[in-house]
């Protein structure tokens, strides 16, 4: 398979899950394991252009596939607009769900570059966040969508609020 633009060849046991192969064999620990039951989405990666929950996919199923993980998003030291959005718009707290959220958002924006708020919410409904209450995640994806369309993101709510310092 090809992972983040790098050809990878390995013999794995048939039972090896893709997420374990990525984390333990390739050392790509940015892909997290939250529930092992495909529910939380912390393990989301992109397989042949589509998002997949790597905790319920066998490594052998990805034989020959093109895989992108969170580590493969930033190019030449530049954050991907979705990564930038999650940082700039405070779309994370503990950050454990963040790589999976970001990969789901990247998948959503590749299919729909100008999503409404409802479409964003539906696009990432398979990803659980326990910290943020999700609103800043929506703002983060709106920021990224604008950037990827070559537009200036709308100012953050707090940029228009008075600073009390």
């Amino acid at each position: 398979m090809n992972v983040n633009g790098r050809a990878v060849t390995a013999d794995v046991e048939p039972r090896t899950l893709l997420v374990h192969f990525l984390r333990d064999d390739l050392g790509l620990t940015g892909t997290h394991i939250g529930c092992e039951t495909s529910y939380c989405g912390a393990c989301t990666v992109i397989v042949d252009g589509r998002t997949a929950k790597s905790c319920t996919m066998l490594a052998v199923q990805a034989d020959g596939a093109e895989i992108t993980t969170i580590e493969g998003l930033a190019a030449d030291g530049e954050l991907h607009p979705v990564q930038e959005g999650f940082w700039e718009r405070h779309g994370l707290q503990c950050g454990y769900c963040t790589p999976g959220m970001i990969m789901s958002a990247v998948g959503l924006l590749s299919e729909n570059p100008d999503p409404s708020e409802d479409e964003i919410r539906h696009g990432i409904e398979g990803n659980i966040c326990r910290c943020t209450g999700y609103h800043n995640i929506v703002r983060a994806i709106e920021y990224a969508a604008a950037k990827m369309r070559g537009e200036e993101p709308a100012p953050a709510e707090w940029e228009t609020q008075e600073v009390t310092a």
């Binding site: 984390r23 790509l28 620990t29 940015g30 892909t31 997290h32 394991i33 993980t69 969170i70 580590e71 998003l73 930033a74 954050l79 990564q83 930038e84 999650f86 940082w87 700039e88 405070h90 994370l92 950050g95 454990y96 963040t98 790589p99 970001i102 953050a156 707090w158 940029e159 600073v163 009390t164 310092a165």
Partner: peptide
């Protein structure tokens, strides 16, 4: 008083932040 961005934000969005399981 300012909405300062998190110092751990960049490693967290890059998958480089070290969690215990990493």
């Amino acid at each position: 008083g300012e909405s300062v961005t998190r110092p751990d934000g960049v490693p967290k969005v890059c998958g480089a932040f070290q969690y215990l399981d990493d």
